[in-house]
Design a binder for these strands. Structure first.
Lengths: 250, 250
DNA sequence: CGGCGACTTGACAGCGATCAACACCGGTGG
DNA sequence: CCACCGGTGTTGATCGCTGTCAAGTCGCCG
């Protein structure tokens, strides 16, 4: 470390996102607003399981709202290494522009999926008709950013068991049906995809998974249906507190 | 792998972001526009070197444009582990909302820095006066996302030498003055910060750095002033091609 | 039944973390 | 001028986690 300097707050904190005269500044991310926006302006597309969408770099600033099913975006490295960049669940917004870095990014459907795709023209039209939409999209993008930052911390600084606990906690908070201290969640991800999301080897992942099972942190009802003990999970990852706090805030 | 399914393109590709009637849909990210926007509506703030801004979670949807100096955002884990989440260089936009996940995120000035801070009210006012601004901000946020995705791939799937090559290539492309195949770049990051950005131990980082120096991929003019061989760097990381391509596109 | 794919588990090797020693530099004070 | 010191970076020795390879289990389906 270096000479300790007392921390300061940069901008004058004028009260947690509420304007001085009382009007809410930060538009609350109302899922319904975005949903109806996509319903009105987007075109419905279907993706069968295992279907791959490549060439994302060339589609321009397309947008999509996932309405059912699951997708993963992954980056292929030259030598068989692969990194899953995001996991998309129903309700998530997919920004094609976020993948513009390289043509090596692919979007793959883990199950049959439906999404509402918005062309750039539709977005442009909507921007004039309902300017608030852009604020919502910006907030959504920033939400993605903050989630990806947490994930980066997991990839950079957590060991395998901690990463796996983080993964289950993340999924349970996002799409699990919680019942008291436990949550049930369906997920049809295969080991390879989880491993590539966590930057692990499938073998190592399997070992970590077995440990969590032995210690009754998770248990499989069937393949693809899991009961997770939220508190036990949070206790097993240094990011647990942060994730629970972020979840309560949202 | 699984049964191979021929890849498809999801949205009908109507020609790289240009509308059918020829008008450009995707507003080109004009740095000058954003700069003047921040100049007009933001308030100037100074940060001395080593100054820390904490409690980002409570500042709400503030925005800032970094005009000089360097900042890093880092996440502290309970047990002395730390992950540097982003490195901000002059011209970069800082979204406080992107760090809302947890109060453990801190922003630290590596050198004396100046930034133009935009309060939520100013943003709100600007949104009505110049709606295009929000599009620019959205594009900026998506750009952050795509860079962070590349970084995630580095953290998850690259070994130490590759990560370091990626780091230098990233910095050289962002803020180096390139002269033919080489680029000179000033950077005042200390080893600990680089290591925490790359998810490595400072010792391991030092070893990788020595290797790059021995093999004449990089060489130090002074401490904090580096000459980098761009092609040699790109050859040493699987992400090299993607990074060069993304740089040419932007 | 046999083959295939998904997953698990053991044995082993290798990369990177850990710990320690050391070089180097600027500042300080005798 | 030199000794001393703290901060920073380098390098060697050793250990442990995780990748690699292999064998084995289970369920599914032709």
């Amino acid at each position: 470390m270096r000479k300790a300097v007392p921390p300061t707050k940069l901008p004058p904190d004028d009260g947690r996102g509420a304007n001085r005269d009382g009007t809410p500044v930060r538009p609350t991310i109302d899922p319904a607003t975005l949903t109806s926006f996509f319903d009105n302006h987007g075109t419905l597309e279907h993706l069968r399981a295992d279907r791959v969408v490549s060439d994302l770099a060339s589609v321009g600033p397309h947008l999509a709202l996932l309405t059912s099913g699951m997708l993963v975006a992954s980056l292929d490295l030259p030598d068989d290494r692969r990194q899953v960049l995001s996991i998309f669940c129903p309700g998530d917004v997919i920004f094609a522009q976020a993948f513009k870095t390289t043509a090596a990014v692919r979007l793959r459907a883990l199950s049959d999926a439906e999404l509402r795709v918005l062309t750039p023209e539709a977005l442009e039209a909507a921007r004039e008709a309902a300017p608030i939409t852009l604020s919502l999209l910006l907030a959504t993008a920033l939400n993605h950013l903050s989630e990806l930052m947490l994930h980066s911390a997991a990839l950079g600084r957590l060991r395998s068991d901690e990463r796996l606990a983080t993964f289950f906690l993340e999924l349970a908070l996002r799409r699990g049906q919680s019942v008291g201290p436990t949550a049930t969640l369906d997920f049809e991800m295969r080991r390879d995809d989880i491993a590539d999301y966590l930057g692990l080897n499938p073998d190592t992942l399997s070992r970590s998974m077995s440990r969590l099972r032995r210690e009754n942190v998770i248990s499989f009802l069937t393949a693809g249906r899991v009961i997770a003990n939220l508190e036990a999970l949070a206790a097993r990852t240094p990011l647990g507190a942060a994730m629970l706090a972020a979840n309560r805030a949202a």
